[in-house]
């Protein structure tokens, strides 16, 4: 029973990882790529770690996997928006189909 739930979670995680990487390949500029991959790959890896917890049952490995999961959920968005900010500051222009861009106007005002 535990193994079945673990398999379902691992497959869900793999599918979301795959879509995140597909977004990394298909989307047209840095910000959209960041958008797709930061969400999908975080959830996908969390799914794989939850599957590991289901496979192993309660024990040392599961506790470590849970700590790793919490750590990834806390740090992945932080590194994502550090990279988005760095991309704007280093002068990468948004894609030509961008509708509106309020950050470029106000960028110099914020330290």
């Amino acid at each position: 029973m535990n193994e079945t739930i673990g398999m379902v979670l691992v497959v869900t995680g793999l599918v979301f990882d795959f879509f995140g990487c597909l977004g990394l390949v298909r989307f047209p500029d840095v910000y959209n790529r960041l958008q797709a991959s930061a969400k999908c790959i975080t959830l996908g890896t969390c799914g794989i770690l939850l599957g590991l917890i289901c496979f192993k049952g309660f024990g040392a490995t599961s506790v470590k996997a849970f700590l790793c999961l919490v750590f990834i959920i806390l740090t992945a968005p932080v590194s994502a928006h550090a990279l988005a900010r760095a991309a704007y500051r280093s002068g990468v222009k948004p894609w030509s189909g961008t509708v509106e861009d309020e950050y470029s106007k106000d960028m110099d005002g914020i330290k």
């Binding site: 840095v30 890896t45 794989i48 990834i72 590194s79 994502a80 991309a87």
Partner: peptide, 19 residues
Amino acid sequence: PDRAVAIDMLGILIVGFCA
């Protein structure tokens, strides 16, 4: 920055490999 994003995501994927 494109390469930096890809390397960041690769780092998270490697945690999945280890799991």
